[in-house]
Design a protein around this nucleic acid. Structure first.
Length: 745
DNA sequence: ATCGTACCAGTTTTT
DNA sequence: CTGGTACGAT
């Protein structure tokens, strides 16, 4: 499995012209091959290019075989991109690499050494859903007041421990936080032993177990020291403590570790990332060199100035200055637009997108980046009325959808009948009349005999103990499974899965379902079956899905992108809209309440990430009134607006927003915001704005009218109430929509 | 076993 | 205003 330690084989082409494309600092980062190196790469400074070129350089100069380099990323997307780019430089497919996400690499290692942590090499990787159900069971058994101490909070505690590399044994009694009356540690312990009994690992375990093995098994560690001569790490600012420990252990061998990252783009502390890891790099790795990449090739000068000025307000950073690296770096000032309410904000953005479109900007080059998911809705509605195609990036992931998880559970049982959690998920899906009673019997049987749930169920189904109705249902299910397993032998896994989903009644369940989502779900299931075909075995597919499974929302066609700021990291667009810069929303109230300066600084980094996504134009906006949970509430402009360099931005205030200032003068605007006009104050009755002007529709909708809706397609009106319609859509089912979003068909 | 109602909470997300 | 969950009624 591991390569011999002989000199690497020669490469057909060992020219170094790939170096010529780099600027001096990038070149330094690539050529400083030996010893620890931290590459501080500002936004848009060619981080990925450096990382991939460095990888190729190591191979081209015959310092190592391809499989002697460990390259780690956070996302599968980044891993895939790196693989492709390394292949491009090498001029041939890069195979046999240790290149992947932290979790995928750990899973691969852990399959070899699973016995050290009480698992077998065929352990299953649980999704969040399974984790929660398991934890709830454990907490039930421990008699925890689940109302006072919700399982979700307990899960967060456990995950934080895992993020920090703490096995139950390593959690000190003092650490046994006051969650669940100091039962937290024992619950954690019980949860871990349940996982072990199920031969399962959750995502955190992949890192935790592997790190624990490297810590305690010197021979295993030595094995990897022999294997990896060079280590490359992407997005180092996002690493958590276990990931750091894991890297440090592996780097003890050759000390050739190169971490690339940007402390100013650290936005994931809430999921365990420790900015300190990157800030501490020189101490952690003695003799480390630091190279700064500061030439930005992405954005215009005003955009860079705005971003730099803002981020300079943060304490505790290593410090970089972005320079415009392009020749054509001059550009328009960053706009800051003040608006009356969130609807006007959506209208403004829509108009400017239309304008840009007329000027020839492709829609794929425009993006709306929001702080929180719910903000996308008003923009979606606006874009629909304008007929502008868009896509929402992120949101619910393909593999998180119920139908995909269900289908996956069927496959897991097919593959491994001992997968109790999967079995429990599907035993009564679709409804088979197996309720708590029957399930309880199975659990008891399984525990008493020490056998998997499915086996216990099968035995029970042959006895009189179980009632006739569930018994018949169970028999049918097990007959099915043995049939499908035989089918898998004969016809392959794709046919077997497709047949299983049909014969089990699962697809039928969704066909019967009249809800709006049902057709889409059936579509997703087809997509899933198609995806299985890309793998040689069901086992291979299951492993892939557990770790990967990107949502294949193939972005065909030019569309405006709508997403959260977090989801936008790493992307770039000509035209970027940054709406909702209001206190409480951005920075978010929760960040202000909970984390103090630290989390405020993280919000500021988020703002920095947002601005630096723009290549040519950034439009920041805030509204004086915003609808929150159905209620209108006043909002004051974000403090971040005051942290932008006045000379590099152009403020635009709409008349409506100025009225807003009058209405809410005492509280809403804190004076520093020069929205005021010289005109005399005009007092408008508070609440007046609630009466939305809306051109009366002469062609009012009637019940029975056939209509067309951009998003939901064709349907028939079933009820009319003012401007609200209830429509029975052919594909999407019953929906309530506003009349202006539909047209007569 | 399943359905309906009453309550509650409600950033950011990858693997 | 939503969606999800918990619990009680049928």
């Amino acid at each position: 499995m591991f390569p011999p330690a002989q000199p690497p084989a020669p490469f057909p082409d060992s020219g170094t012209d790939y170096l010529a494309k780099l600027n001096p600092e990038q070149r330094e980062a690539v050529e400083t091959v030996d010893g620890p190196l931290l590459v501080l790469a500002g936004a848009g400074t060619g981080k990925t290019r450096v990382l991939t070129t460095r990888f190729a350089h190591i191979l081209m100069t015959r310092r190592a075989f391809p499989n002697q380099v460990l390259a780690v990323t956070f996302t599968n997307k980044a891993a895939k991109e790196m693989r492709e780019r390394v292949s491009a430089i090498l001029g041939r497919p890069a195979e046999g690499l240790w290149l992947g996400t932290f979790h995928a690499l750990c899973a691969r290692m852990l399959r070899r050494h699973a016995e050290y942590v009480g698992l077998t090499s065929s352990f299953t990787i649980l999704d969040t859903d399974d984790q929660m159900r398991l934890l709830k069971q454990v907490m039930d058994a421990a008699v925890v007041d689940i109302k006072r101490w919700p399982a979700q909070g307990m899960m967060a505690v456990i995950q934080r421990w895992k993020d920090r590399g703490l096995t139950p044994a390593r959690v000190s009694p003092a650490e046994d936080s006051d969650y669940a009356n100091n039962k937290a540690r024992s619950i954690y312990e019980a949860y871990q032993s349940r996982l072990k009994a199920l031969n399962a690992a959750d995502f955190g375990d992949l890192m935790l177990h592997m790190t624990e093995i490297l810590r305690t098994q010197p021979d295993v560690l030595a094995q990897y020291h022999r294997a990896f001569r060079y280590i490359l790490v992407d997005e180092y600012q996002d690493t958590n403590t276990v990931q750091y420990l894991w890297l440090r252990l592996l780097a003890q061998g050759h000390h050739n570790i190169c971490c690339v990252g940007d402390d100013d783009q650290s936005i994931y502390s809430w999921r365990g990332a420790e900015v300190e890891n990157i800030l501490r790099f020189e101490k952690d790795f003695p003799g480390a060199r630091i190279v700064r990449l500061e030439s930005n090739y992405r954005s215009t000068r005003p955009i860079l100035a705005a971003a730099s000025h803002l981020i300079a307000k943060n304490e505790g950073r290593l410090g970089k200055t972005l320079r415009a690296g392009r020749n054509d770096a001059d550009g328009e000032k960053v706009r800051v637009v003040s608006l009356w309410d969130s609807e006007e904000e959506a209208r403004m953005v829509g108009e400017r997108i239309e304008q840009a479109q007329r000027k020839g900007v492709p829609l794929g080059q425009a993006a709306i980046l929001v702080r929180a998911g719910f903000q996308t809705r008003s923009f979606e509605e606006r874009l629909i009325t304008l007929g502008i195609p868009y896509r929402v990036v992120g949101g619910q992931k393909f593999y998180e959808r119920a139908e995909i998880r269900d289908a996956m559970a069927y496959m897991r049982v097919l593959h491994q009948p001992s997968d109790d959690l999967a079995f429990e998920r599907i035993v009564n899906t679709p409804k088979r009349g197996i309720g708590d009673g029957a399930l309880q019997q199975m659990h008891v049987g399984a525990r008493e005999q020490g056998i998997p749930l499915a086996i216990a169920a099968e035995r029970l189904a042959r006895t009189e103990v179980m009632r006739a109705k569930p018994r018949a249902a169970m028999r049918e299910l097990f007959d099915g499974f043995s049939r499908w397993r035989a089918l898998m032998q004969r016809e392959g896994h794709v046919v077997a899965v497709a047949t299983m989903l049909d014969e089990s009644g699962y697809t039928e369940m969704w066909k019967q379902d009249k809800s709006a989502e049902a057709p889409g779900r059936l579509e997703n299931l087809k997509e899933l079956v198609r995806a299985i075909g890309e793998f040689a075995t069901l086992e291979g597919f299951l492993e892939h899905v557990a770790l990967v499974m990107e949502n294949d929302e193939n972005a065909e066609g030019e569309r405006v992108s709508l997403m959260t700021l977090h989801a936008a990291k790493g992307l770039e667009f000509d035209l970027v809209f940054l709406p909702g810069w209001e206190e409480g929303l951005f920075p978010h109230q929760r960040a202000l309440d909970e984390g103090g300066t630290k989390s405020l600084e993280e919000e500021r980094r988020l703002a920095y990430v947002g601005i630096t996504r723009a290549r040519k134009m950034a439009v920041i906006s805030h509204a004086a009134n915003r609808r929150v949970y159905g209620n209108w509430s006043a909002a004051i402009p974000s403090r971040f607006l005051d942290e932008l360099p006045p000379g590099e931005i152009e403020r635009e205030g709409s008349g409506a927003a100025q009225r807003g200032r009058m209405v809410n003068a005492p509280t809403v605007f804190s004076g520093q915001f020069p929205l005021s006009s010289q005109r005399p104050a005009r007092v408008i009755e508070a609440g007046a704005w609630e009466v939305k002007e809306r051109p009366a529709r002469a062609d009012a909708m009637r019940v029975g009218q056939r209509v067309f809706h951009q998003k939901f397609g064709y349907g028939r009106v079933t009820a009319v109430e003012d401007d609200r319609l209830e429509v029975d859509f052919e594909k999407a089912g019953q929906k309530r929509v506003l009349d202006r979003f539909v047209e007569k068909a």
